[in-house]
Amino acid sequence: MAPSAQSGPKPPVHFSSSLTIAELAVLTGAHHISIHSESVIHPRARLDSLAGRVTIGRRCVVHERAMIGGSASSGLTSARSSVASPGVLSPTAAVAGSGGEASQSATPQSVTLGDYVTVEVGATIEAGGTAVGDGTVVGVGARVGAGAVVGKHCTLTPQSVVSPGEVVPDFTVVLANGMRRTDRRGMTELKNKGLARQIEVLRRLISSKPAKFA
């Protein structure tokens, strides 16, 4: 088994009892991470609440190496550099400090995922008031910039980019070459049902270890 990838402070978490979280998922940061009912976190998914709160809605699926939160500069290096930064050297100090900071900085630097959101392998969602609407699929290796607001039922195709601060309207399909179009298929109910079935299966296949993060 690979060594624990836990680096940096352990964040305070708020888990629903019906959540499935793999043992190899990585949670770091100082702010609250809350995950609502029936969501699935795959191994090696990374949730970083160092900059602000991370909220994940109902029936979301976060795949391998997806990065949710973390500083806007660079997804993977942020967690490492944060360890070296002063003020968060010890986990206890960071948690104690977060109580005071949370009131000002939690909201502007947060990440919020709606319900039925799928974050595919290696996708990055940067912190900074970022919001992803219900039913949206963030494709493999896609990147949602800091402060971007992605609407409901959007599809970000693999390796597409939503730039920081951008507002993407509901039902938009974002293509990797920068083009956009609107999804008029009206498949949202069907997609949600399919996702619910997928979660049912994943709950049986992935052994959940929420106690590791509590």
């Binding site: 391998e64 190496r65 392998v121 290696g122 399919g194 079935r197 997928q198 049912e200 299966v201």
Partner: peptide, 18 residues
């Protein structure tokens, strides 16, 4: 390095399977 292999999944006869 950093590659990821995962089985594909889909709905088959009304139920999801990999």
């Amino acid at each position: 390095r950093n590659c990821c292999l995962r089985p594909p999944g889909r709905l088959y006869k009304g139920a999801f399977t990999y």
